[in-house]
Amino acid sequence: MSAPVRRFVTLFLVHAALLVGAAFILLPFVWMLATSIKPPEELFTAQLQILPDRFYGVENYRFALENAPLLRFALNGVIVCGGILVVQLLTSIPCAYALAKLRFPGRNLLMTLVLLGLCIPVQVPALPIYIGLAYTGLLNTYFSMMLPFFLSVFAIFLFRQFFRSFPDDIIHAARLDGMSEFEIVWRIVTPSAWPAIAAFSVFSIVAHWNDLYWPLIVISDIELATPPLGMLFFANAESGTNYGALMAAATILTAPLVIAFLFARRRFIQGITMTGVK
């Protein structure tokens, strides 16, 4: 085989493998989209068919929008995810800066504790936090949904990796120019960390937008439900076995994430490659 032919075959095989992988990952989404535009009688036909014979999208989406407060769920999702993200950034960036750039006794021990924190799943402290919230009467509030996630050890770890490569000389120059450490963090280091912030934001928003576990524990009021919890209420109470409408609702609630990711994609990839995470 000549070199160009071999090259072509290699490329073909690589892309074929990638396509199979992509199809495998995308299939549930494609199925969700397809189901959301199918009429009920076509859902359980024996043959595999992506596109419906009869377009039923308008009815499904209308039913979903009319019977479930989907926009309310989405708004709740935005409030909860936004609140969590803002506090996470405010706490983890100074913390990561200190761990990456300041020299103080016990720094390595603190870093080890942060890494240990990565190993503790949210289920472990769930009960004490729940009891605490119940005693203080904070169940069924936005605050109760956000509280366990305000401090993100993952964010500390990710930003620390990013800040470690920030030139020390620039920090020294800032100290000589009279900046306090907090000003250095927010005015000098953070503006250079946008790729890492974008990457972390995607992680954080996706995780909390899709989180069912914690809202299910602390929220019983449907007015406060985040998208997955809202879907759960909707599936139980309203739609019954109307899977077309259910999938239409799921599509509507997934769309913001997909759109947000498309916008942040370049920075996200840049951030991941620069921090060496994953």
Binding site: P167, D169, I170, H172, A173, A174, L176, I188
Partner: peptide, 13 residues
């Protein structure tokens, strides 16, 4: 005292 660094250490943004 003012200092000039080898890497210039200008604020990039």
């Amino acid at each position: 005292i003012a200092m000039v660094f080898q890497s210039y250490a200008l604020y990039p943004h």
